[in-house]
């Protein structure tokens, strides 16, 4: 039962992140996703301190605010400070993440988060933290509800805004020509990424969220040219990742989220080598050994 719950939670994280990741990598914003996943930390800690507990709603709101704030600072440094974009990203996320870690150390007594958990989460504890109603009925793991809710939110967002997201991703100039606000959808997407990050944060940690954001989407990208197919493949790859990751961790007795990200990397490597269209081995066999 525990294994099932962990795999289920892992799959939900992978699917939620992966769906957004498809947009991120096509918009060449993978590293902004990386930055957001680090810089929501101070937001989370402050929400903790204000609420005095793990109030999920407040944390989601705080994360959304910090995430948008991060994007804003990065753009501000880039446009107004004339700092090149890679440096703007690097300066911003390390700064905010460092503040978050310091806050955790300073309020260690009041904040139920530790530095390691920040980095690689504690998905193994998911089944232990159940949501029990006032009348004493056990409804199952709390984290499952949170990530489930966020997944629904993300799916709702993508379904409602599919046309806008699609156009602003592939042809921003055309999108703004027909009256779609590129900036608005940019910030909406960033808000969703922030919310997803914070919901996944406790489970897989700051850095492994990036693995879930990028790896399944990148793998799917190598397997297809159609965007909708890419989204579906991402979901499937996410589930496979979660499933095999769990058993890999079980086998060598290590971190589950670490194992899941290793699997996601392996799947990418497979696609990179053997994808029917893009795989380098396949290309060599097809076109001979001279081409790249």
């Amino acid at each position: 039962m525990n294994a099932f719950l962990i795999i289920l939670t892992g799959s939900l994280v992978a699917i939620t992140c992966g769906l957004l990741g498809c947009f991120l990598i096509l918009r060449k914003m993978a590293m902004i996703g990386d930055a957001i996943s680090h810089s929501v930390l101070p937001g989370i800690v402050i929400a903790y301190l204000v609420a005095g507990s793990r109030d999920s709603t407040l944390m989601l709101i705080a994360a959304a605010i910090t995430g948008v704030f991060t994007t804003f600072i990065i753009e501000f440094l880039n446009k107004h400070g004339r700092l090149q974009s890679d440096a703007s990203i690097g300066v911003t996320f390390t700064w905010l993440f460092a503040i978050g870690v310091i806050l955790i150390s300073a309020y260690a007594g009041q904040v139920d988060l530790d530095q390691d958990c920040v980095l690689y989460g504690e998905i193994a504890y998911v089944p232990l933290d159940s949501w029990i109603t006032g009348s004493g009925i056990n409804l199952g793991p709390r984290a499952l509800y949170i990530i489930g809710f966020v997944l629904l939110l993300v799916i709702f967002f993508i379904v409602i805004g599919y046309k806008e997201l699609f156009l602003t991703t592939f042809d921003p100039a055309f999108a703004s020509a027909i009256g779609i606000s590129v900036t608005l959808w940019h910030y909406l997407l960033m808000t969703m990424v922030s919310i997803t990050t914070v919901a996944s944060f406790e489970l897989v940690g700051a850095i492994l969220v990036i693995a879930f954001l990028i790896a399944p989407a990148a793998t799917a990208y190598l397997l297809t040219d159609k965007f909708k197919t890419m989204l579906f493949l991402t979901v499937i790859i996410g589930v496979i990742t979660s499933f095999s990751g769990y058993y890999l961790a079980e086998w060598i007795n290590g971190s589950i989220s670490g194992a899941m990200s290793v699997i996601s990397g392996l799947l990418f490597a497979l696609a990179f080598l053997f994808s029917p269209k893009e795989g380098i081995v396949v290309k060599r066999v097809k076109y001979g050994f001279k081409t790249n």
Binding site: A30, M31, G33, D34, L119, Y120, G205, I207, L208, I210, A211, L213, I214, A215, A218, L248, A249, I252, N253, G254, S255, S257, G258, A259, M260, S261, V262, S264, G265, F268
Partner: peptide
């Protein structure tokens, strides 16, 4: 960059917890 960063880090975490 994001892919290699997170996958290698995941491998590191796996080894560290091991």
């Amino acid at each position: 960059i994001g892919l290699i960063l997170s996958v290698f880090f995941g491998l590191g975490i796996l080894a560290l917890t091991y």
